[in-house]
């Protein structure tokens, strides 16, 4: 059994990460799941949350990214994460999140139809998840 898997983290703007890692924990739509080498093939949607990259199963996360949703494709050799936006956890700042939160709330107020309201709701959820992600990183 291979002891690493190939992780590709890509956003529309660029390829953020492409390396061999020991384990990655991904925020799936139905809950966080860990991916180890030789995982069964899986396609999952992602919810806003934190992607943790570990060098080994028992190691502390080497890198953490906040992602705001997207897709994960897992096969035995690796894991591809297609995300809309990924921010390294250490780059999250309280100001930034507060800005997003107020922008999302404003959008919520001015939303004229269900589609806009849903988009605003999502933006709000992203901001909330960011806050808890930052709290988690600080702890």
């Amino acid at each position: 059994m291979a002891d690493t898997l190939q992780l590709d983290l890509v956003s529309p703007a660029k390829l953020l990460m492409s390396e061999s890692v020991g384990m990655v924990v991904v925020p799936g739509i139905e809950g966080y799941f860990g991916v180890l080498p030789d995982h069964m093939p899986l396609l999952s949607m992602l919810r806003p949350g934190v992607v943790s990259v570990h060098a080994g199963v028992s190691d502390a996360p080497a890198k953490q990214f906040f992602v705001d949703g997207g897709f994960a494709e897992v096969n035995p050799d690796g894991c591809t994460l297609l995300v809309d936006e990924a921010i390294a956890i250490e780059d999250l700042t309280a100001d930034n999140i507060a800005d997003r939160q107020s922008a999302a709330e404003e959008r919520m107020q001015s939303a004229e139809n269900d589609i806009e309201r849903a988009a605003a709701e999502r933006a709000l959820l992203v901001a909330e998840e960011m806050t808890s992600a930052m709290a988690g990183a600080a702890a």
Binding site: V10, S11, P12, K14, L15, L43, F71, E73, T80, L82
Partner: peptide, 19 residues
């Protein structure tokens, strides 16, 4: 910018192709 956008578009296409 064009080169950095390619991986995403390609992977998206192959993922969608599988599906």
């Amino acid at each position: 910018a064009a080169e950095q956008a390619r991986p995403y578009a390609q992977r998206m296409e192959s993922m969608l192709g599988n599906l």
